[in-house]
Amino acid sequence: MSKAKQLAYLILAVFLVLVTWYLLSVFEAKDPALDTGNDSAAGQETDKQPVIVQSVSFESDASRIVSVGTGQAQQSITLTPESAGQVRDVLFKSGDSVREGDLLLTLDKEDEELALELAKLQLQDTRQRLARYEQAAPSGAVSATEVDQARNALSVAQIELSQAELAYTKRMILAPFDGVIGRSQVDPGERVNESSAIATLDDASNLNVDFNIPESFAYAVQEGQQVVAQTWALPGEEFTGKIRSIENRIDRETRTLQVRAQLPNEQGRLRTGMSFVIELFLSGELYPAVPAVAVQWDREAAYVWLVHDGVAERQAVEVLKRANGWALLSGQLSREDQVVIEGMQSLRGGMPVDVRSQKAPPEDISERSAAGILNDG
């Protein structure tokens, strides 16, 4: 191919490229009026401040009290004899579960057995004598005075029998209530008296724990309120109970009030004498609660940004408490208010906002309170 033809082809190719570029630019051109409208709308969208909001919730101004107490059985006694004597039989072992009325220990009782038999015979004799006198009285063989004396003798015999029975029962120790008995402090053959300790008996189906709270909470605590207990003997486990009773006086020395909590202990895992850490949550008045990041500050006071009808509004507040990423506030806030939690740095009063996301507050406020979100430590 000659150089002239090559040059002609090159010029033709350049010409086609130029024509193609021109046609594309013409077809891609926009209507000037349409361009102006789009630019205006885009400008309006650019003027709005993007934010993320969250609904205001309401929390109780709860207080968390932590105290230490010692567990004791709901019934606990030291068994002692009702009379002096020599131990005959010990009928229990340490740790036995006993029922009310179970026989636990006997003393020598030969004298009491004889006295009881004698009292029974005397009663039988006086009863028979009175029957004969009453039968003979109508015929005049027995005077009325003798009949009265026989009746009195019967009454005396009945009393003597009751005394003999009482003396006999005092030679035995019975369980006064259901519980678990400790180890025996005496052995068969040993002499004991009314002050001798035989064993301890505990009804620990419920465990009482006494603890103290500050005087300032005296009127906030009530019977039936829930407590949570932990013991060093069983680390990592929690036991739930309720307040059973409240002392009627403030201790003058410590300025505290003694409270008794009761912990269910059906499985018998808790023992008398264990130490416990008691947690008590006392609820208070309801206040608005928002994430702590929503609260802003200036020289005058704390405030939050609210969104009403797409516009930012500044609302002054007072911070009552901050804990675990939340703030408890006092101010003119309602459950319908949306508080800005992101994007508030460039906000001004009356500025249009673009709500990019709306977060809901936690569903169950009571569960949050129980979890300690806004509780004092």
Rank of each mutant, 00 (worst) to 15 (best):
A141E: 12
S184R: 01
R255W: 01
T169Y: 09
Q124F: 07
V319K: 00
D298Y: 05
R368I: 03
A33Q: 14
E110C: 00
R322M: 07
Q6Y: 11
I250A: 03
Y9N: 13
L104M: 13
Q128K: 10
V317Q: 01
V19D: 00
G179D: 03
R271I: 03
V192I: 09
S97A: 13
Q6M: 15
G241F: 02
E237Q: 12
L114F: 07
Y287Q: 14
K30I: 03
Y219R: 07
V186H: 06
M1E: 13
V209T: 09
L7D: 13
E82Q: 15
R191V: 14
A220V: 01
T46I: 08
V311Q: 15
T272E: 12
Q258F: 02
R368C: 01
V209N: 02
S97D: 06
E190V: 08
D96T: 05
G331L: 06
S25R: 15
I77G: 05
P32S: 12
G350Q: 06
R269I: 10
S346Y: 13
K93L: 09
Q358R: 11
D31A: 04
V311A: 10
Q338K: 14
A327H: 02
E134S: 12
A62W: 00
S55C: 01
R132L: 09
E190P: 02
D47Y: 10
S283D: 11
S195L: 11
W21K: 11
L123G: 01
A261K: 02
T126M: 07
R368K: 12
Q230V: 07
V353Q: 00
G236P: 01
V304I: 13
F27K: 13
M172W: 03
S162L: 09
A42V: 05
S369H: 13
S67G: 12
P362V: 07
S143M: 03
Q262F: 05
D39W: 06
R322N: 07
T80G: 07
Q226D: 07
S334L: 08
A115I: 06
E194M: 10
D309R: 15
H308S: 14
L234T: 04
A289G: 04
S283T: 15
F58A: 06
E253A: 08
Y168K: 06
R88E: 15
Q158I: 03
E59F: 10
P81K: 02
R64P: 00
A302L: 04
Y303Q: 03
V51M: 03
I198F: 05
I198N: 01
E165M: 10
Q149N: 13
S195C: 00
Q128N: 11
A4K: 08
N152V: 08
D203P: 01
E59Y: 11
G310R: 02
S2G: 15
R129I: 09
A197V: 00
T231D: 06
Q296E: 14
W326N: 11
T70G: 08
R260K: 14
L306Y: 01
A197N: 11
